[in-house]
Amino acid sequence: RERFRKVARAGCLVLLIAAGCAVLWGVLELRKHQRRDAADRTLNGEGVISPSWRVSGDCRPRTTAERSRDEAVADLLHHFDHQRVNPGLGYKEQYFAWRWRIAGSSGSCSPSPEHYRRLAGVLVPLGWPKLPTDRSDLELTRRLPPSPALARNLAELAFASHPLPFGPLEYDNRPFARIMLAEQGRFARPWGRRALTEIAPDTKLGTSAATLAAATVPQQAAPRIAAALTAMTQEADRRRKRIEGLKGGPHIVYQLRDGERLFELADALATAGPAAEPHAEPLGQTF
């Protein structure tokens, strides 16, 4: 009887340890899953980035009051140190980065190009934009005159080895920096080859690399972007067949994230210009 009691006790202990291990494993798996979700939200959670041609449009000339306000904000240049991050610099960036034309024809035009030239003259030699904490500085680069130095500064951010989180949801800023680098035109060419190797259909980093490659090495980029589009449509087709096999009838086969990657790839293909035409078949299939 004593022996039976010992065996039972040992058995209970083993069961208890096994149950403890199972609970621990479950908790660790759950935390791993949560970490993976959070990382995915940081890297791919942001909506589609609007390219410049979608942001700008008709505008009305600036009024005298608005021009005088522009002068006043531009004067902050003389009162704040540009070597360090400070509220004066941050406010000025936000002011001049504002999407003046977002309201369409009723919106005011941007401040005078002269203000942007002066800003570029001060900020770009300082290595700006550096580690952005919000979008204003990257939004502002869209309005400054393109230059080799600005392209170099943007490339530092666009190809950083780690995510550059901004905003309360901590979205990664690198894809936006890649789009801004693409808008530097010929000055972005030194990063074209690298972008070409990073084209991917399923991540925001991959689709923004596609835009950069299309803007810099369009002949090589267009077939690769078309291949990425084909990979997406084929995957959607497989999913459709699988769902139809189970339930029958037509189903939505693109999940929201896939749809956004699809828009980004389509826009990247269009960025390649005339080089995109012979490779546009996958886009036609998407329709």
């Binding site: 826009d267 269009a270 546009a280 886009l283 329709f287």
Partner: peptide, 24 residues
Amino acid sequence: TYLCAAADRIGGRAAVAASRASFC
């Protein structure tokens, strides 16, 4: 609209496919 605008920018067959799509 992203897809339609991209197809219009590319032109050719892509633009034709877009013109046939009900959502463009």
